[in-house]
């Protein structure tokens, strides 16, 4: 059993969260979701609150390396998990390849769903690399082999992340570029002249 403070009836606990490799100890109301703990308590506001009900994906983070929505994860239940947020995916000043691709290919507009899209995409690429099928996979049997990460596969796997601005086409392009595959939408136009220009 857990520490004795939880053996008596209590509505708050002092917990330690491991976020982006750093430990944070804080008292939390048990009602506090991981999303609110990040945003309201730890000033990690990169994880966004879009619906607070698991219906939009804006709060996607990585829990033990797998994507999850922080709005339905109680903070107190996230102890002992490795939590990675958008603030933790870059390597210092060097953007994660998914971040770089989103930036170069304009994989966003208002930017509010973007951290969730990026964390989700990182999860998608790992899940695909691990051989996980999706609802777009025509034959899920293991002997069929892993499906190629086509645009259709990316779209299905990313569907838990709504983008109301409708930047879906360039998001799919960005995920494909970061994954090192060719999406069918690749265009030659709109090559940015600015810093971090696309090849």
């Amino acid at each position: 059993m857990r520490k004795k403070q939880l053996m008596t009836s209590s509505t708050s606990s002092v917990i330690t969260l491991k976020i982006n490799g750093e430990k944070h100890t804080l008292p939390v109301d048990h009602r506090t979701t991981l999303l609110d703990a990040l945003r309201e308590r730890l000033d990690l506001t990169g994880t966004k609150k879009g619906c607070d009900q698991g219906q939009c994906g804006a709060c996607t983070v990585l829990l033990d390396g797998r994507r999850a929505v922080a709005c339905l994860q109680l903070a107190v239940a996230a102890e002992n998990r490795e939590i990675t947020t958008i603030e933790g995916v870059a390597d210092g000043d060097r953007l994660h390849p998914v971040q770089q691709a989103f930036l170069d290919l304009d994989g966003f507009q208002c930017g509010y769903c973007t951290p969730g899209q990026i964390c989700s995409a990182i999860g998608v690429i790992e899940e695909h690399a691990a051989g996980w099928p999706s609802a777009a996979t025509s034959d899920v049997r293991p002997e069929a082999g892993p499906p190629p990460l086509s645009a259709e596969e990316i779209r299905e796997r990313m569907s838990g992340n709504l983008c109301r601005c409708g930047a879906y086409v360039s998001i799919v392009e960005a995920v494909a570029r970061a994954a090192g595959v060719q999406a069918d939408e690749r265009r030659g136009e709109d090559v940015p002249a600015g810093k971090g220009a696309a090849a």
């Binding site: 999850a68 989700s120 999860g123 899940e127 796997r157 569907s159 838990g160 992340n161």
Partner: peptide
């Protein structure tokens, strides 16, 4: 659901 929710 979604990939995120299936992981939870």
């Amino acid at each position: 659901a979604s990939g995120q929710l299936r992981n939870m």
